Simulated scan of single mutants.
Amino acid sequence: MAAPAWSQSEDEGFSSQNEQETSSREDSEDSESSLHDALYLKMTELVEFLLLKYHAKQPTTKAEMLSRVIKEHQDHFPEIFSLASEFMQLIFGIDVKEVDPSNLTYVLVTTLGLTYDGMVSNGQSMPNTGLLVMLLRLILAEGDCAPEENVWEALNVMGVHDGKEHWIYGEPRELLTKVWVQEEYLEYQQVPNSDPARYQFLWGSRAHAETTKSKVLETFLRDYRRDPNFVSYLSEEAMSDEEEGA
């Protein structure tokens, strides 16, 4: 049966209204997506800028970052700067620290007070301290001794695979079992009485000399607050060990 004229008119009105709302929503989503992409691009540009500053051992200021990188997106500086700082710390192990609040000056230093950044003398490689910090955390979480299989399982999640060259970290096995062992940040040893032989990682003497478990725990608490049970366990273990070593 044909719908009455008033019903057809009403349906057409609803349809037109729905189309307008859908179009408006899509335009809004496109605008948000475009802004998100632009801010992400600015974040990556700021990371590149900060890496150059780190290589050159130069400080930077908010004014310089705004004029040279952020430019037309200055209203979004806080979120861009925050994301770039987190990226620098987690991926490269570099902290962006404010040293002069009066003119908002920042320096770039290796995290946890470590004196190693993994860069070669000509400055062409990337800082790899971020991966080292992750390993120190993992060893701490495993009760000061991390089985090698657990380490590689964790690294695989990060896209770091045994025997596969990584764009930042190079060949991971050589880095973990040779370079960082020679630098005395890690110990790589056979698990006692294991047959067939299994291996494990421990903190090296240089790691103990340059940082502490409580400092590593602080960075853990800052970055991984989503698992209260694990954080509570790790906190108790680290603090207990620190008191025993005091």
Rank of each mutant, 00 (worst) to 15 (best):
P59W: 02
E26L: 01
A56G: 06
L50Y: 10
F14D: 07
S15I: 15
E21W: 11
S28W: 09
F49K: 00
P59G: 00
H36G: 06
L41W: 04
Q20Y: 02
E48I: 10
Y40H: 09
E29K: 11
S31V: 10
L46R: 01
H36S: 15
S28Y: 12
L46M: 04
E45M: 09
E21K: 15
F14P: 03
F14N: 07
Y54K: 01
S23R: 15
S33P: 03
D30T: 11
D27Q: 15
L35W: 07
V47A: 04
T61P: 01
E26A: 03
Y40L: 15
R25S: 04
S33M: 09
N18Y: 11
S23N: 13
D30H: 13
F49C: 03
V47E: 04
S28L: 15
D37K: 13
K62P: 01
H55N: 09
H55S: 14
L51W: 00
S34I: 06
T44A: 06
K62D: 05
F49W: 09
Q17R: 14
H55F: 07
N18Q: 14
Q20F: 01
L52R: 09
Y40E: 08
K42T: 05
S15P: 04
A56S: 11
N18K: 14
D30K: 15
D27I: 06
E26F: 02
S24G: 07
Y40A: 14
S24W: 07
Q20P: 03
D27M: 12
F14S: 08
E29Y: 08
L39H: 03
Y54F: 07
T60E: 02
M43F: 06
S16M: 13
H36W: 08
E19N: 12
D37S: 07
S28P: 04
E19L: 02
S34R: 15
F49N: 01
T61W: 05
S23Y: 11
E26W: 00
A38V: 05
E32N: 06
S16K: 13
Q58T: 00
K42R: 12
S28I: 08
D27H: 10
S33Y: 03
K62H: 07
E48M: 10
K62G: 06
S16A: 14
